[in-house]
């Protein structure tokens, strides 16, 4: 029986390798504070469960086609969540690499799972201090509506650290949690990162127990929080000051891409709170931050050639993460803005 188990593990390994989700047990905590998590250096997760990404992460565990070396000069720093991480598409089609081709600038992508606006806002200082981008910092967001509590947490730097996969975890360090972090998780991590088969099964069991890795993305689609203009302005002001004080003269661009849904009549609907987006855009303008809203672009591309920005050949259409077309639209809109900014400057 033991021989059979070992043999079947060997047979299953190449298949499992294709399907292991890079999220989950595979992420490790990042202690430099630039992001809360990162992947292991040079790890390889094709992620065939949603899209396909047959490429390795770089020496820092981020999705870039090149390694980062200390003191490297960076023109544009990309921040954001799993969408900008682009663990679902071939790396050369990611926003980061499309922007490299469009702008010929040195662009570094530190997009990471679950790094939504609040986390990025808190990490912004350390990220800017470390990479010192000289031209732009592009922060990708998929929700532009926030509660007062979320904004207050950003201002007081009390945003919960992104830890591991379950959203049910809290900051309370109870006994069970400490045991889990001290003994269980490191042990599991060791075993699972060495066996793709067990790693895949572990992720499947977690999903079965309703710890869906993408649950936060889904919940953001229907966010109804209304932005408090005063609090939001304070947050954005602080972010603008951080960029001004710690970068080499870079400009902050916040790029918002909403979730979409196919309506029964065949039209594409933009999800999210449009009023809150307007407030967000206005607050950005007031604080010298450039704001890009992808809503119109998504709608016009769909009208023109039925292109949807999300969904893959192995998942539901028009849902989940940005696909190749979504990244193309995202990169093109940022490029347009950069051209406009540089045109205005000249």
């Amino acid at each position: 029986m033991t021989i059979s188990v070992i043999l079947s593990l060997i047979i299953l390994t190449p298949i499992a390798k294709l399907f292991v989700n890079p999220m989950g047990i595979n992420v490790i905590e990042n202690f430099d504070g630039v992001t809360d998590l990162r992947l292991q250096a040079y790890s390889f997760y094709p992620n065939l469960g949603e899209g396909f990404s047959p490429c390795k992460y770089n020496n820092e565990g981020y999705s870039n086609l090149f390694d980062y070396e200390n003191g490297m000069s960076i023109d544009v720093l990309l921040m954001g969540n799993s969408n900008i991480l682009a663990s679902n598409i071939i790396q050369k089609y990611s926003t980061a690499n499309l922007l490299i081709n469009l702008t010929y600038k040195k662009i570094y992508n530190i997009g990471m799972f679950k790094h939504y606006f609040a986390t990025c806002a808190v990490n912004l200082k350390k990220a800017v201090e470390k990479y010192k981008p000289s031209e732009y910092i592009v922060l990708e967001i998929m929700s532009a509506s926030f509660t007062d509590e979320e904004l207050k947490n950003i201002l007081s730097q009390k945003v919960e650290k992104v830890r591991v996969i379950t959203s049910k975890e809290t900051n309370k360090s109870d006994f069970v949690r400490s045991i889990y972090y001290r003994y269980v998780r490191p042990g599991l991590h060791k075993i699972l990162t060495h066996s793709s088969v067990l790693n895949l099964i572990y992720t499947q069991l977690l999903a079965l127990l309703k710890h869906n890795l993408n649950e936060k993305i889904i919940s953001y689609e229907y966010s109804t929080s209304q932005n408090n203009p005063v609090l939001l302005s304070q947050v954005l002001k602080r972010m603008a000051e951080t960029v001004k004080n710690f970068s080499h003269g870079a400009k902050l661009i916040i790029a918002y891409h909403p979730s979409v849904k196919l309506e029964k009549d065949g039209s594409l609907k933009i999800l999210g709170n449009t009023e809150a987006v307007k407030i967000f855009a206005y607050a950005c303008e007031q604080n010298g931050i450039y704001f890009v809203d992808l809503s119109e672009r998504f709608l016009s591309e769909y009208k023109k050639n039925y292109t949807v920005p999300t969904g893959f050949f192995n998942t539901s259409i028009a849902s989940g993460h940005m696909n190749k077309d979504g990244h193309r639209m995202f990169a093109e809109e940022i490029y347009k803005l950069m051209q406009k900014i540089e045109g205005d400057k000249n």
Binding site: I3, S4, L7, S8, I11, L12, A16, F19, I201
Partner: peptide, 18 residues
């Protein structure tokens, strides 16, 4: 061993791809 290996592989596929 052959039968058992095929069966475990099949179960692994179900668990991994379900």
């Amino acid at each position: 061993i052959t039968g058992m290996t095929i069966f475990f592989t099949f179960v692994g596929l179900i668990l991994g791809l379900a």
